[in-house]
Computed example of a mutant assay.
Amino acid sequence: MSTTETELAWFKSSYSGSSGDNCVEVAVRTAAVLVRDSKDTDRRALAVSRDAWAAFTALAAGSRR
């Protein structure tokens, strides 16, 4: 990885709420989507392929119906 995780544009989940618990952030790269716990940003982020992320979010959106 040429870009460090601190240089990425991280976006917090809109479902995270304001109480500070259960917060997930994502950053989109060319070949992958990075996922991390916003309360523990020193930990290494999980990298998943863009296709896997698209499948996950489609599945998660379908479960809200």
Rank of each mutant, 00 (worst) to 15 (best):
residue 48 V to I: 15
residue 35 V to I: 15
residue 17 G to V: 03
residue 42 D to F: 02
residue 37 D to W: 08
residue 52 A to F: 01
residue 58 A to C: 01
residue 23 C to F: 10
residue 21 D to N: 14
residue 1 M to H: 09
residue 48 V to M: 14
residue 45 A to K: 04
residue 9 A to L: 11
residue 39 K to N: 12
residue 57 T to W: 08
residue 61 A to P: 00
residue 46 L to N: 03
residue 40 D to P: 00
residue 43 R to Y: 10
residue 37 D to C: 01
residue 11 F to M: 12
residue 21 D to Q: 14
residue 20 G to W: 13
residue 24 V to I: 15
residue 62 G to H: 14
residue 4 T to V: 03
residue 59 L to G: 11
residue 27 A to Y: 09
residue 7 E to G: 01
residue 16 S to Q: 06
residue 61 A to V: 00
residue 23 C to G: 04
residue 30 T to A: 14
residue 21 D to Y: 06
residue 20 G to M: 11
residue 56 F to T: 09
residue 57 T to P: 00
residue 30 T to H: 11
residue 20 G to V: 05
residue 48 V to P: 00
residue 20 G to P: 00
residue 25 E to W: 10
residue 47 A to R: 11
residue 38 S to Y: 04
residue 49 S to L: 02
residue 15 Y to E: 08
residue 48 V to K: 07
residue 36 R to L: 05
residue 8 L to H: 02
residue 5 E to H: 06
residue 27 A to K: 09
residue 56 F to C: 07
residue 27 A to F: 08
residue 5 E to Q: 13
residue 4 T to I: 03
residue 35 V to Y: 06
residue 49 S to P: 00
residue 57 T to Q: 12
residue 65 R to N: 05
residue 17 G to E: 11
residue 65 R to E: 12
residue 9 A to E: 13
residue 5 E to W: 01
residue 36 R to W: 05
residue 53 W to F: 14
residue 40 D to W: 04
residue 53 W to L: 06
residue 10 W to P: 00
residue 61 A to K: 14
residue 54 A to V: 01
residue 5 E to M: 07
residue 50 R to A: 09
residue 63 S to C: 08
residue 2 S to L: 10
residue 63 S to G: 06
residue 46 L to T: 07
residue 19 S to Q: 14
residue 33 V to E: 11
residue 14 S to K: 11
residue 5 E to I: 01
residue 22 N to F: 01
residue 9 A to Q: 13
residue 47 A to M: 04
residue 16 S to R: 05
residue 3 T to E: 15
residue 55 A to K: 12
residue 44 R to H: 08
residue 60 A to H: 10
residue 58 A to G: 12
residue 59 L to E: 13
residue 4 T to W: 01
residue 15 Y to C: 01
residue 61 A to G: 02
residue 38 S to M: 04
residue 56 F to Q: 06
residue 23 C to S: 08
residue 9 A to P: 00
residue 11 F to N: 04
residue 63 S to N: 09
residue 52 A to Q: 13
residue 27 A to M: 07
residue 10 W to V: 02
residue 38 S to H: 08
residue 49 S to K: 07
residue 58 A to E: 10
residue 45 A to H: 08
residue 24 V to D: 05
residue 8 L to N: 03
residue 29 R to N: 08
residue 9 A to S: 09
residue 15 Y to I: 00
